[in-house]
Design a binder for these strands. Structure first.
Lengths: 142, 142
DNA sequence: ATCTAGATTATAATAATTCTAAACTATTGA
DNA sequence: TCAATAGTTTAGAATTATTATAATCTAGAT
């Protein structure tokens, strides 16, 4: 279990004032073995269930966006009615199960490096993300 | 200029009743040299400006979704507050300009085929999409 | 021409997200 | 230490995209 103190330092390093709410959110998001994906709604639920804490929805939005801007969280490019975020900020790809709407991380062995041959003058590549959509194989393939 | 009649046939082939609204929407969407990307809002504007026609918002949604289900339109997996659609239904990838929020099509020469080594039992791959995010190269890189 | 399933429509409802403005608090520096 | 203040949090309202509803309409079959 990482001490709160670390998050206080981390937040300060990011230029974010280490408020009670932000530290709590860090604990919920980053005090884990594994990285994971979540929606704002998931996160609010986690905060109230795991931490028995209530943080205003507006603050959760603000903080998630602040973390994202600082590169502490990553938004996932899936078209959906809601936004998905990822605590794994490294460059990696995803499988998306269209049946269950589950998002599955790939590691570097799952997909070979993508070779981009196009170049847009004056622009640099910020990220390359592959999304592999999968669905049930058998029966009446829709 | 493709005759309406063709869209009537096309719609029938897709199992969609060729109503006035659907034919009009086909004209706006597919009577073009080039494929393009749009949001529902863009499309409503195009219909009213280019065709001087008014189609109910609900119908535009219904029809776009019907076209999508039939594979006549493709939804693009960009996380955004609104949904983007593409009249180019072939498998292709995108560049996304984070400065201008413009979406640029890739053709098959721009990105080498992606080699997926992961396999999920019982699931088949429906699509593989690469999204390359680019932004201004020079100055204060954010 | 009539019937009917499927479409269209205006409008209401829903859901995610952003805005607002008042209350609060971490930090600074006197 | 303590007040000033800039940055935060908050509840609730506002906004925006999308979906649901239910009445009306119409394409296609009989």
């Amino acid at each position: 279990m990482v001490k709160n103190c670390n998050f206080v330092e981390k937040l300060r390093d990011l230029g974010l004032r280490p408020t009670k709410q932000r530290v709590k959110m860090c604990e919920v998001l980053f005090n884990r073995e594994k990285t994971f994906h979540f929606t704002i709604n998931d996160l609010v639920k986690m905060i109230s269930e795991e931490m028995n804490e209530k943080i205003s929805l507006a603050t959760v939005y603000n903080t998630v966006h602040a973390f994202q801007k600082k590169g502490y969280l990553k938004e996932i490019s899936i078209n959906s009615d809601k936004s998905y975020f990822d605590t794994n900020t490294s460059v990696h790809h995803h499988f998306y199960d269209e049946d269950t709407h589950q998002l599955i991380d790939c590691d570097e062995n799952d997909i070979d490096p993508v070779n981009i041959k196009k170049n847009i003058t004056g622009k640099k590549i910020n990220s390359v993300e592959v999304l592999v959509k999968v669905a049930s194989d058998n029966q009446t393939q829709k």
